[in-house]
Structures are given as C-alpha cells and as structure tokens.
Write a protein that binds this DNA or RNA. Structure first.
Lengths: 336, 336
DNA sequence: TTGTATGCGTTATCAT
DNA sequence: ATGATAACGCATACAA
C-alpha cells in the first residue's frame, strides 16, 4: 500500500507537506504541489478513508436501513428505486453507503450500535417498523437521520404525497362515473392511515357513501391477501364498480381472482393500484395507479442527510413532501 | 464516544489490559476480565471498527458491485434476492456491506480504487459488464473477489446451472409434444452463450430441427424488445408451437404481443421464461420457467469470499455451480 | 514555505 | 497477570 510517507520520501519532503499538497492547502509552493501530485500519481497513491476517518472524526459513510417488516425490503421495485437514488446521490456527494442491519455477527448490535460501530455520519431509514424500540433508539440518538414516509418529532423526513395521491385517484374514479368505490388497504401504518383518511374525506366531499364492507384490510405486497379481499367484495350483494388496491403488486392477486370469476377488467369492474412501478405499465391493460416519486425521494433523502451532516449548526429538521403523479392507465373505465 | 481509555480509567487498569480483556486474551485474570466487561457494558462501550481496521489491516467490510450494464441492476427481483442473501450471510459472519460504484464524488475512482479507498477486504461482483477494463482491473488486483455467473482465470465464481436449466426446459417442452421451439435470447453475454449452446445441443440430441429464424436476439429485462421478436415469430410462415423468453420479465412483453394478436397462452401457443422470480408464479396462468438458485448464489458468494479472506494461504479458486429447479407452471401445454 | 510533533482508538510486542 | 510503548495512515496546530 502506497502511503503519504512513500510520497514524502520520493519527493524529499515531509509527510505534512505531502498531506497539505494533496488536500490543496494554500501554503505550499505551486511547484512543490505539482511535484508531489505527480509522484502520487506515479506511485498509484490512494488516500486511506479509514485513517482519514479516524483522524477527522468523519467517515464519509452513511448507513441505510432497509428492514421491511413485511419481508422483502429492497426486493420491491419501489424500494429498490429509492435505494438506487440514495446511492447515486450519496456517491455524487462523496459518501459511501453501508447497510445497517440487526443480528450483526458475533456481537449482536442493534441499529444504533451498528451505525455507531461503523462510524456512520448519518443514516437513512428507508423502510422499517417505526414502532420498534431499536428504530426509536437510533432516531433519538445523536446520529443524524432522515426517515422515509414517517415523521419523528424534531427529525427530517421525506414524505410521499399520500393524501393528495389518494385524492387524485378518488376524483379520477368519480369523474369516470364511479360511485361505488371499494378500498383494499394495507396494514395500518401511518402511510395507510393517510391514504385511508384521504379516501374517506374525498369520498365525503364528493357525496359518495362508503359502506363499511367496502373498506377492507389486506397486506402490502401480498397478492394472495388482496385476492381474498377481492373475493369478499365480489360476494357482496351490491358489488363495487371500482376497487382500489394497496399497491400495484397486490393488484395482481385481485386480478387473478377477478379472472377466475369471469369478471373482466375494466369492462365489468374498474381497478386501481398504487406506486406506479414499471411493471404496472407493462401489463395490459395498463394499470391505473399513482406513481410515487421514488427517484426524487431517494435523492432528496441523501441530499438532506448530507446537508445535515455537513452543516449541523445551521440545520433545521424539515418535512419534505415529494409529489407523485396520477397514471391514468386503462383500468378505470367510464361508466354511468 | 466511550473508548477503551474511558474503561481503563474507570477500572484503574491500562488500556492494553482492557483491550485484551475485551478480546478474550488468555492472560488476564478472570476477575479482572469480569470487572472490565461490566464497566464496558455500564458505560455503553462500542468498539470502533475504524480504529481497529487501521490497526489490524482488516476492515471486516466487503464491497458489492452491482453495475448492470442493461440498467436497473438491483431493481430486478433476481438480483435483489442475490443481494439480500449476500448481505445476510456477510453480516452473519461479521462483515458489513459497502456498495462499490464508479463516479465516486470529487475523486473519480474506478472500481478497484474505490474498493481500495474503503479498505474492502474483498468484493463480490454481482452484476457487471465483465469486458469492462475497470472490472478486469479489480479482478486482477490483489483484492479477493468472487464473481457471479462469470469466471475469470484463477478466480472464484458462483455459477447458475445455465446449461442444465436450459436443457430441462427444452426436454420439458419436448415431452409435451413440442417440436417447433423458438428461443428469444438476451444480449450475447457468457450466460447467454451457455443457454444458447445448451438449447441447440439439447434440440439436436432430441432430433429437433431449429430453423435459423427461431433463434432471435432481444434484450434482457426489456419486455418491449421481446415483444418485437415475438411479433416477428408470429409473422413466420411456420410459427413455433413454443417460445422461450430471455427471462420472466421479458415474457410480459411477449404476452402482450400475443394477446394483441388473439393468440392465447397456452391454448394457441406455449411459452417459458427464465429466472423463476416470484412474479412469474403470481401471474395466471403460472409461467413455466426455470428458477435459478438466487438465494444460494448470494449466500455462497459471501461465504466463499469470507473464507478466501480469512484463510488466504489455504485457498484455491473454485467454480461453484448452484442448481436451480424447473418450475412447470401452466404455460407449456401438451400438444400433438 | 516547509517541517515537527501530536493524536484519532485500537492492538501487538515486549517488559515487568 | 499487567503495563508501557509503539504503530496503523492521516491531518493539523504550531514552530521554524
């Protein structure tokens, strides 16, 4: 391994001079700087991030937490898109990404300990069970964090516009003549709460009555679960004319159930998903859905975290809402 | 931050003693060890991986390279599954995961430099353009590597059983009476070569003639591209009775094209995918495909890399083939 | 403009 | 059984 000591010897200067020259300090003669840079290149010198981190107290390394309670985690397109963008933006800013998990090796570290152990400058909590004590501990610690789709008191968060998104979906269905709209939602997380309230509120403001049986709980990203609820909806004396699913993937479960019953989409029943993953637009008919701004969420998360790390004194926690967009698709049909 | 020095002061012993006690050295009095451990816990001490890495020359950190030339990278279920398992196994063994990318911050580092800069003990190359010089440089360096689905001379690799997988698919189609089988394959990577050769060889050994027009090139994970080739196949004077797609996702493109032409699956034409991602079994009819052992590939990659890192002297490069399994599904119909 | 000295937190060697 | 000391590679305050 080539170190600054090697360069200093090769150039006949001290290590301090080399360090300064390489870091662009203003008090080294231009000629010397040139000579040192040249040698560094010639020797194939690379700075050692570990040693630098130890010295300056910053690792230029940020942790990413993907601990999807409903399994999968990063394997869903929505999350992997977020991750890709966190990574790209972080690297652009000179930070590396380390995954923070539990059950770490022989030492069993929780999230906070793990992040600390690796000297992470900050952590993006991209998906987690926010009620878990280990998550709270991390968020309440001195480590800067940014949370996705959940807000902790006094902390920064990046939020998808769930209220607006659901409202747009409801209005779109309404404009197409639908008055009997069912909503199969996911587990009762804070995201679900927002969508649910927005669903109810928008329906109310449009004068749509929502029977209790039209609101059903399934499991996110679990097609089978949504399939069962779809079956239940089909068995009702008064079927809905439109069904909203928890997410695009869950819709597939409903789709199968509908097909099995000879119910055609969108001729016999209209449907909508949520997320707007690429898959939803590969399918035919194209799914009506709401595309969350996953790219922007990831980018913003990384950007704000780094900002918070680098300017801790002039930092205020903030909630950033990232707008998505309605994808009209072809699965909501005009009726009435 | 609580350091070893804090503990030494609290216990009235030297830092050396604390370090030894914490690391289970045999030459410290059991009573002292107990006292030190107790204090460490009481003070909330956490070892500092950075300092340790600097001292012992090992970071307990492995790099993961996901640089899918065809875009996406980790966003495909196949790769994200591999990644999840690399991560789980690595963490179990006490190693963390850092992503290795190009275009790193202000310094522009290539893969090798990036891994070196972060003192990675080794790198898993999970998806990359293997002809890229930057990849070669990494592989030919002193850093231990494990490659997935590609073998470099003298290096360890984890291979999916592409030859056997394709053979099983062909035989399955054959057993169901198919004699006119078309194969839409992906870009001509080494994986593609294996599947292609296996396809041709198996067909030959079964006495199936494969017209030139039945072999078509599309792009992996690109439904549209496979859709176009599907269209071309449908336009042939003598249509195939069965179409193999490059992968499960690509099949969706073909599916749309078939539907648009009123060709029903599997009544009018049989199809098969490749990969066996969960999505393939959510669809109806369930896709006939070959499920690659993604979990095991990830786990093995991490395991072998760590082995290589920890026992460099008794290490021999090896090629491990991970078997997958035929998923019969419902899209290949018995004919003839 | 350059160099000397020191320390970040840890482990390893060698005395005691 | 325990401790003093040095070293890993780097950056910085201060001296020259």
């Amino acid at each position: 391994m080539v170190t600054i000591t090697d360069i200093s010897r090769a150039c006949g200067v001290s290590r301090a001079t080399v360090s300064k020259a390489l870091n662009g300090a203003p008090d080294i003669a231009p000629a010397t700087v040139e000579r040192i840079r040249e040698q560094a290149r010639a020797l194939g010198y690379l700075p050692n991030a570990t040693a630098r981190a130890l010295k300056v107290g910053r690792s230029y390394n940020i942790g990413v937490l993907f601990s999807d309670p409903t399994g999968g985690g990063i394997s869903h397109e929505f999350f992997s898109t977020i991750f890709e963008n966190i990574k790209t933006e972080a690297e652009r800013l000179g930070y590396d990404i380390t995954f923070i998990g539990k059950d770490f090796g022989p030492l069993s570290l929780d999230f906070y300990e793990h992040a600390k152990y690796r000297s992470c400058d900050g952590v993006v909590i991209a998906s987690a069970d926010f009620s878990e004590p280990a998550v709270r501990r991390l968020v309440e610690s001195e480590i800067p964090t940014v949370t996705l789709d959940y807000t902790f008191e006094g902390r920064t968060s990046i939020l998808s516009d769930n209220v607006s998104g659901m409202e747009q979906l409801v209005r779109f269905a309404y404009e197409n003549g639908h008055r009997r709209i069912a909503f199969i939602h996911g587990e009762l997380t804070s995201v679900t709460q927002k969508r649910l309230v927005s669903f109810r509120r928008t329906c109310a403001s449009l004068g749509i009555a929502v029977p209790q049986e039209y609101i059903r709980q399934a499991v996110y990203h679990n097609p089978k679960s949504s399939g069962l609820e779809t079956r239940a909806l089909l068995a009702l004396p008064e079927r809905p004319t439109c069904i909203f699913f928890p997410d695009d993937l869950s819709f597939l479960g409903g789709m199968n159930e509908l097909e099995r019953n000879g119910v055609r989409i969108p001729d016999d029943i209209s449907v909508a998903g949520y997320d707007g993953i690429p898959l939803s637009q590969i399918l035919r008919p194209r799914l009506t859905t709401y595309r969350q701004g996953a790219q922007e969420m990831g980018t913003e998360a990384a950007r704000l975290l780094v900002e918070q790390i680098e300017y801790p004194d002039m930092w205020l926690p903030q909630q950033v809402t990232v707008r998505g967009e309605l994808v009209k698709g072809d699965t909501i049909r005009r009726i009435g």
